[in-house]
Design a protein around this nucleic acid. Structure first.
Lengths: 257, 257
DNA sequence: CGCTGCTTTGATGCCGATCAATTAGGGTGG
DNA sequence: CCACCCTAATTGATCGGCATCAAAGCAGCG
């Protein structure tokens, strides 16, 4: 409501569509169908959870801002398992179950729209290209999640570097962020919880990256002077975001890996 | 070839089918179609990687034994990101790319069969139930991967306990393993690499679990005297393996979460 | 302009990595 | 049947990365 921009997705392009294009080309038809999918655009304030709507038949689509999926361990720690960036779909898990449950939290102010699950599924049967694209999406997500697991085995400095590489690459993929920098309105605590590192330590590790001129990060803006160098330092291979670049070679595999 | 058992999957039931049944009921038709899917049954020795076959149009299906997906960090460490249990599909990633690449390793002797990707996909269009089931499979895998991520934030003892809970539950789900125990032919090093913990420390943590009578583990056999108690100790919620138990309530969501 | 949340710095301590070496099992060939 | 070997399991000792506790600068904001 505050942002009429977010509501329209006017030129048949929004972050979601831009992201899906990475799975392979979409027909104008498919692009159009996608752009008609969005419902009830609205803006939500930072620092709160998205609560499960009354309507289970909808999923959320983030158009701007950053959210996260997380779980709270019983010692009170919050562990973020993935960021929800512009163009990302997410289902809000039912809050029902016992203590330890998945939640989606808004890290910055976000504009979101709803998408009808039924409509989305209908599109998948009518448009094989979209079916492929959505499979690609799910498998890319799985791939990224596993990449995070691997990242957990790296020492702190590289771990942070790797995460920053990924964030930059993902934002670039949906048209946010330039060649060597992007807006990044996360707090150090958010990064810490995503890496499973204390916020005190994150700060020190951050300083280390700065001291090596690998990054500059001020007033919500991340700048990477030499992307190549940061990639090397973090052992980051951008290919994995495209599901290993396989998307153009073979159709996604419908399961398991 | 050594094990004619593995080749046939005779009574329209094999671990793969048993696993899919967790996504919801399958029609006899669908079960039959699935059982006809398997090609070239064979047995592979432990302690080697599955190399990418010449035929990209096939995926592997493990019928018995345990494999793992892993990546080797450049310091030589192996990080396992998921176990491949009987009934699990897996694609062998092309070995092409640079150093750091996904690999699938056999942790025990395994019997595997091939599945034609084309045939599988064809089944998905013909049988909506299978389509749903395979989506469920992928999303359950994603869910599990995120659960591992959360697990990485727990202290060692609980981390191990949690993993053992999951292994037991997954094996039970495909009909291997009894109420409070199962065969588990993994080495301590395998567990260590899956948890991102040194093999020395795993040993100590294991002893701690034994001392508390939470588990007994001898000669490749895991026994859990009191499953409930281990679950509590590990903060393990078996529901997540069924994708939050949602499978029976709503169709899986075709993306992101 | 005071509040509140984020960042930064210092000091201490523990979990778990690492190094080093011994013991136990399983399998093999003489 | 035993000597031998190779791998997995176990134990001890040392070390370091990172958590934790505590508190001080800083910035945005109503």
């Amino acid at each position: 409501m505050l942002s009429p921009e977010a509501a329209c997705g006017r030129a048949l392009s929004n972050p979601f569509i831009r992201k899906l294009e990475h799975a392979g080309p979409l027909s104008p038809d498919e692009r159009q169908a996608l752009s008609r999918l969005t419902l009830d655009a609205r803006t939500l304030a930072a620092r709160q959870d998205i609560l499960p709507g009354q309507d289970v038949e909808r999923v959320y689509l983030v158009m701007s801002g950053i959210a996260c999926r997380y779980k709270t361990l019983f010692d009170g720690t919050r562990r973020i398992v993935s960021f929800v960036l512009p163009g990302d779909l997410c289902r809000i898990p039912p809050t029902s179950r016992q203590s330890s449950e998945w939640r989606v939290g808004l890290l910055t102010r976000c504009s979101v729209v709803d998408v009808s699950r039924a409509a989305l599924q209908e599109l998948m049967v009518r448009h094989p290209g979209l079916n492929r694209a959505l499979w690609w999406l799910a498998l890319a997500e799985l791939n990224r999640s596993r990449e995070w697991l691997v990242n957990d085995s790296r020492p702190g400095v590289q771990r942070l570097a790797h995460l920053l590489c990924e964030l930059l690459a993902c934002l670039q993929a949906v048209g946010l962020g330039e060649e060597n920098g992007c807006e990044l309105a996360l707090s150090q605590v958010d990064l810490a919880d995503a890496l499973g590192i204390s916020h005190v330590h994150i700060n020190r590790v951050l300083q280390s990256l700065r001291k090596q001129d690998l990054i500059v990060w001020q007033r919500h803006r991340l700048v990477v002077p030499d992307v190549e160098r940061l990639h090397d330092f973090a052992d980051f291979d951008p290919a994995y975001l495209d599901f290993g670049g396989l998307s153009t070679v073979i159709d996604p595999l419908p399961a398991g890996d």
